[in-house]
Computed example of a mutant assay.
Amino acid sequence: MNSDPIDLSQQVNIFSDDLRQLHFAELCNALYERELHSISQKKINNISLLQRQIGGLKHHIKRASYNLLQHQSPLEVDIHNASWQAKQAVNCPAKLSDTDKTEHWFHTHIALGICSAVYVNELGLEHIELDSIDRVELQEGKVHLNKFGWFHLNGLPVLKKNELQQDDPLQANSATASNQQATMQLLKPTKNLMLAACCGHSWNHKGRTQPRLLSLRELLLSFSINWKTFR
């Protein structure tokens, strides 16, 4: 019989590794379930595109799960839902946004690929969504976001000629907002705004509502946030 003493510290390390693997598997399962459901709801006529999306899931989901476990941010991780968690503000923090400060920030920090926050009011339901800058035209004073399109550096959307531009989407009354399909505004990143975006916090006319689950794309974008400078 082996009477060698048991290294308790080694046991703790082994247990930690096992627990970490379990959490990693839970995160992967949650993300697979979410993304496959999302793909199933889309109308995709291009089979080649669908194949590429499904083929890339393994890589992106493993990357997202690993980063959630390695996170160093003011956010907590919900292992079961593969999501960020933090206390939700009573009111949408985007209401405190200032277009002059937004323009100054983007003039100073503008760069391709940076993670940005966009305020979205869709039929009275408000949230802040992560997107990334993929084109910059400083001479024209505008930037293009990968999902939401063109914005002026002050955060207001660049509208088409046949669209009526409102002075400040964040100041729209509920009646006006409800008559529009979606109201959007690019925001100067702050800790509270990025936190709300990462956690999927949502609001309606009554206050806080059920947080939305981030897409895999948004979740991957959240890992690029520099919480010291909010870039």
Rank of each mutant, 00 (worst) to 15 (best):
P5I: 07
Q10K: 03
Q10V: 04
D18N: 13
D18V: 13
A25N: 08
N29S: 14
E33Q: 12
E33F: 10
S40E: 04
Q41F: 01
I44R: 01
H60R: 15
L69N: 07
Q72N: 13
Q72H: 11
P74K: 10
A82R: 03
S83Q: 09
S83V: 02
A86M: 03
Q88G: 00
T99P: 10
D100F: 14
T102N: 09
T102H: 07
H104K: 15
L112R: 00
L112C: 06
G113A: 04
S116D: 06
A117H: 03
Y119E: 04
V120Q: 14
L123Y: 09
H127S: 12
L130V: 07
I133Q: 00
V136H: 04
V143M: 12
V143P: 10
H144F: 14
N154F: 09
N154H: 11
L159F: 02
K161F: 12
D167Y: 10
N179K: 14
T183Q: 15
Q185M: 13
N192V: 12
L193H: 07
L193E: 01
L193T: 07
L195G: 07
G200L: 02
W203H: 01
W203T: 00
R208S: 08
L214Q: 08
S215K: 00
L216M: 11
L220M: 05
L220C: 09
S222P: 05
N226G: 01
K228A: 02
T229N: 10
F230M: 14
R231E: 02
